[in-house]
Amino acid sequence: LTVEVTLDGRRIELHGLSEEAHEILRHALERNADDKEIKKILEELRK
């Protein structure tokens, strides 16, 4: 799955996400998580 997010003013596409990762990010974006929170989530998903 692919998600497009804006971090530090740049639009980035995240490819190859699992369903779980996609859901976690989608929920964070829906509640307008800040860049710091999104980065933390991405860091966790990379593990």
Rank of each mutant, 00 (worst) to 15 (best):
I24L: 14
R11D: 04
I24C: 06
L17H: 01
K40L: 12
D35S: 12
E43V: 10
K36I: 12
A21G: 07
E19V: 14
I24F: 08
V3Q: 04
H22K: 10
V5F: 07
I41M: 06
E13V: 15
E37I: 08
R10S: 08
I41P: 00
E44L: 14
L25M: 04
K47T: 12
G9W: 03
I12L: 08
V3H: 04
E37Y: 07
N32M: 11
N32Q: 11
E4L: 13
S18E: 03
I38C: 03
E20T: 10
V3R: 03
S18D: 08
H27K: 14
I12A: 02
K40D: 10
E30I: 10
I41Y: 02
D35T: 10
E23Y: 11
H22E: 09
K39Q: 10
R46W: 15
L25C: 02
T6S: 07
E13A: 08
E4M: 11
R11A: 05
K47V: 15
L25T: 00
G9N: 04
R31C: 06
R10C: 13
A33N: 03
L29S: 02
E19A: 10
L17D: 00
L42H: 00
D35W: 11
H27A: 14
A28K: 01
D35G: 08
L17E: 00
E20P: 04
E44P: 01
A21P: 00
E37G: 03
I12P: 01
G9T: 03
L42G: 00
G9R: 02
L7Q: 03
E37Q: 07
R26A: 06
R26C: 03
D34K: 07
E44V: 12
K36R: 12
L42T: 01
E30Q: 14
L14M: 05
L1H: 10
R26L: 11
G16M: 06
V3F: 15
A21R: 02
L7I: 13
L25P: 00
T2G: 05
D34I: 05
K36G: 12
D35N: 08
E19C: 11
H15R: 11
A21S: 07
I41D: 00
E13N: 07
E20W: 14
R26M: 12
L29K: 04
A21V: 08
T2V: 10
E20M: 10
E13Q: 13
D34S: 12
E4G: 03
E30F: 12
K36L: 13
L1T: 06
D34Q: 06
H15I: 09
K47L: 15
E4T: 15
E19Q: 13
D35F: 08
G16L: 07
K40G: 09
T2D: 04
T2S: 12
I24D: 03
S18H: 03
E23F: 11
R31E: 05
E23M: 15
T6V: 14
E37V: 08
G16P: 02
R46T: 13
V5H: 01
A21Y: 08
R46C: 14
H22A: 15
A33C: 07
I38F: 05
L17I: 06
L14A: 03
K40I: 09
H15D: 07
I38G: 00
K36Y: 13
K39G: 08
T6A: 04
A28M: 08
G16I: 05
D35R: 04
A33E: 04
L7E: 02
D35C: 05
E44W: 15
K39Y: 15
L45C: 06
L17K: 00
E30P: 00
L42S: 00
K39A: 10
S18Y: 02
K47M: 15
R31W: 05
K40F: 11
K40S: 12
L25Q: 00
L1F: 15
L42D: 00
E23V: 08
L14I: 15
L29T: 03
S18I: 02
L14G: 01
L29I: 11
D8F: 04
V5M: 04
T6F: 09
H27C: 12
H15S: 12
L45V: 06
E19H: 12
A33F: 07
K36H: 13
S18A: 04
I41F: 04
R11G: 04
D8H: 08
I41A: 01
E43K: 12
L1K: 09
E30L: 15
E43N: 10
G9E: 03
R46A: 13
H15C: 11
E4R: 07
E30S: 14
L7T: 03
E20A: 11
K36S: 14
I41E: 00
L42P: 00
H22D: 05
N32I: 05
L14Q: 01
E44H: 12
H27W: 09
A21F: 10
A21T: 05
D8V: 04
E20S: 10
L17F: 06
T2P: 04
E43W: 13
R26F: 05
A21M: 12
I41L: 09
E4A: 08
L7P: 02
A21W: 14
K47D: 09
R31D: 04
N32V: 06
H27F: 08
K40Q: 12
I24M: 13
K39C: 07
K39H: 11
E19D: 10
D35Q: 10
D8W: 01
L7M: 07
I41G: 00
L45K: 00
D8L: 03
K39V: 09
D8Y: 03
I12V: 11
G9D: 04
V5K: 01
N32C: 09
N32F: 11
K40M: 13
L25Y: 02
A21I: 07
R26W: 03
T2K: 10
H22G: 09
I38W: 04
K47N: 11
D35L: 07
R26Q: 08
I38M: 10
T2A: 06
H15Y: 14
T2R: 10
L29Y: 05
R46I: 14
V3T: 05
E19G: 07
V5S: 02
A28Y: 06
I24W: 10
L45P: 00
G16E: 05
E19I: 13
N32D: 08
L29N: 02
E20V: 09
R10Q: 13
E44Y: 15
H27T: 12
K39I: 12
I38D: 00
E30D: 11
G16Q: 05
N32Y: 10
G9H: 03
E30H: 09
I24R: 14
L1W: 10
L45M: 10
G16V: 05
H15P: 04
R31T: 06
D8N: 13
E43Q: 12
R26E: 04
A33W: 06
H27N: 12
R11Q: 08
T2H: 07
I38E: 00
T6I: 14
L29Q: 04
L45A: 04
L42A: 01
I12K: 02
A33K: 04
L14E: 01
E19N: 11
